[in-house]
């Protein structure tokens, strides 16, 4: 029995050194990490969904989180901007450092930092009673932006960034709900971008969309990563290959492997990762 436990802990140790930082060929260069998650443990009703995950996210890069459903990737993502704890009977321990500052140090910081970490959800959730304009401007009003000109500029800029401006510029007063599903999702991304976040979390942003809308969103992610640190949860491995620079594979609440996307998909070091990316289970 003990031997087994020993073996397991050894494996975990190995795994941790493997996963703490993404492995990279250019190891001489000092990488800059925007967001660092340390020892994140998250649970629902006492059941652990995320077990001590450590992860470092590079600035201005896209990191994809993949894994079979129920592996804890969405829960982990929701810990990164303290969204998980809003769920009833959910708990989180650990640290999330944004530019070295711990989000979990006190409550005030949670609200401050959520502003710096935008989030896009699985299903588009525009505010149904607000117009397109007001949806994008909602966060600006909260944060005390009073100058109408600046607000107009930001709304237009953000809608341009999600390639929605041309489609809606004449209908800004229309309800956000009047848009198609893909447009609604892009509106939600614009709403998240409007508060000028530094990190963008995306929880399967294209899962409810058709291929054309998905393609638009992927193009947009490629454009956005020039300025943002993006973390995207996806169940679609092709999507991870297309949009991400780094990929973390999660399984049963553990981060099994984390490295450059190319390496994870072409040359996985872990057996389970290999099986997953080859499509042997999902």
């Amino acid at each position: 029995m003990e031997e087994v436990a020993d073996l397991e802990s050894q494996q975990v140790d190995k795994m941790e050194t493997l996963t703490r930082t993404p492995t990279t060929q250019k190891s001489s260069e000092e990488p800059r990490y925007k967001l660092i998650a340390e020892d994140i443990v998250a649970s629902y009703n006492g059941i652990q969904a995320v077990k001590k995950v450590n992860m470092k996210f590079r600035e201005k890069a896209v990191t994809a989180l993949i894994g079979p459903s129920g592996c804890g990737k969405t829960t982990f993502l929701r810990c990164l901007n303290r969204m998980h704890e809003l769920t009833k009977s959910a708990t989180v321990t650990g640290k999330v450092l944004l530019d070295g500052q711990d989000l979990y140090s006190n409550r005030e910081d949670a609200i401050m930092h959520r502003r710096k970490i935008g989030m896009v959800f699985q299903k588009p959730n525009p505010f149904p009673t607000m117009s397109i304009y007001d949806n994008v401007a909602a966060g600006l009003k909260l944060n005390g932006v009073k100058d109408k000109k600046v607000m107009d500029q930001i709304v237009q800029g953000c809608l341009e960034m999600v390639y929605l401006w041309d489609e809606v510029k004449h209908d800004l007063k229309k309800a956000g709900m009047s848009l198609s599903g893909g447009q609604q999702q892009r509106l939600c991304i614009a709403r998240a971008l409007a508060i000028q976040p530094e990190v963008l979390l995306m929880d399967e942003p294209a899962s409810a969309l058709d291929p054309i809308a998905t393609q638009k969103i992927e193009e947009m992610i490629n454009e956005l990563k020039k300025e943002y640190t993006i973390i995207i949860v996806t169940h679609n491995m092709q999507q991870a290959v297309r949009v991400s620079d780094y990929t973390g594979f999660m399984y049963l609440g553990d981060l099994v492997e984390f490295g450059e996307t190319k390496q994870i998909f072409e040359n996985p070091r872990n057996e389970i990762t290999a099986k997953y990316v080859q499509g042997q289970f999902g």
Partner: peptide, 11 residues
């Protein structure tokens, strides 16, 4: 520039 318009109104 935009960020300058955000008030630190959190407290």
């Amino acid at each position: 520039e935009f960020r300058k318009h955000f008030r630190n109104n959190i407290s």
